[in-house]
């Protein structure tokens, strides 16, 4: 059993495991709505648009979270403004804004000599989380899970039947913006774990695996959480023993879980 407990002697591994579990819970629960509401593309886009905010905050010594949030919210506003008159479809607007913002981030990064620090933003640095980061990650996890529980009714109704929600006076747009805000927060903590490029994997893959196993929403959230937390812990152990990138190991663990579920269903499901 020493292989299981050895890594726990290191403080950085304890913090990383805690962070991976918290990020897993956050991404998996909101990820179920991302998958059900077909928001996978915007989830990925939000992660990418945050890069210039992170870089600028890093260069000026501001709070990384503040920079990330500002960039994420600004992008969400520009996207909805561009798509407002239907001259441009929303997915096109997202494509334009997210690639532009990501390119801006890479450009800013390339002006710096210490490219290595910044590359952690692209691929995450969960082994270097500080106690302030941990506190922040825990706060976002609590906020997201509490909001999803308190506004379950409204999220459910606007997802199933936005027209009926509108008739009873519940604005689907209001709920959508609130969900985007929570998603932006989630993406910011997801970046801590697996970086800009791979964050959407934590949102989508566990939830997609859960959607194959259940058609009840609470059970889907539970399964997605188990997959994401399990993959976070498993990926970190793999990274510890085989000295590979922790972010990539976590994402590949999620992908493997999805693959197993997919195969099991294909083999066991009655034709």
């Amino acid at each position: 059993m020493s292989w299981l407990f050895d890594p726990l002697q290191h403080a950085f591994m304890q913090s990383a495991l805690l962070a991976a579990a918290l990020v897993g819970v956050t991404c998996a629960t909101i990820g179920v709505y991302v998958v059900l509401r077909r928001m996978a593309f915007i989830g990925d886009a939000l992660a990418h648009t945050i890069l210039p905010g992170l870089v600028v905050a890093y260069l000026f010594g501001w709070s990384l979270l503040g920079g990330a949030l500002a960039a994420g919210l600004a992008s969400a506003l520009v996207i909805s403004w561009l798509a407002r008159r239907e001259a441009i479809r929303e997915d096109t607007a997202i494509g334009i804004v997210f690639t532009g913002m990501f390119a801006l981030g890479v450009l800013l990064m390339s002006t710096q000599r210490s490219f290595r620090d910044l590359s952690q933003m692209l691929f995450g640095n969960i082994l270097g989380v500080t106690s302030i980061d941990l506190l922040l990650i825990a706060g976002v996890a609590l906020l997201v899970v509490a909001a999803l529980a308190l506004f379950h009714k409204e999220l459910e109704l606007t997802s199933v039947d936005p027209l009926y929600a509108q008739i009873v006076g519940l604005s689907p747009d209001l709920v959508r913006y609130a969900l985007l805000f929570l998603l932006a927060l989630t993406v910011v903590v997801g970046i801590q774990a697996v970086g800009v490029v791979l964050t959407s994997a934590l949102l989508i893959t566990p939830a997609a695996a859960a959607a194959l196993l259940s058609n009840r929403l609470p059970r889907m959230m539970l399964i997605a959480t188990l997959v994401a937390v399990g993959s976070g812990v498993g990926g970190l152990y793999a990274s510890y023993y085989f000295n590979v990138s922790s972010g990539a190991a976590i994402v590949l663990a999620c992908t493997a879980c999805f693959g197993v579920v997919w195969l099991a269903r294909a083999v066991l499901a009655p034709r």
Partner: peptide, 24 residues
């Protein structure tokens, strides 16, 4: 409505859907 815009694949039961009529 004549043609609803319902997402019939959403994980909600018939009882759950009818209960949304109480939300107002």
């Amino acid at each position: 409505p004549q043609r609803s815009r319902i997402d019939w694949r959403f994980p909600i039961t018939v009882r759950g859907l009818v209960t949304t009529g109480r939300y107002v």
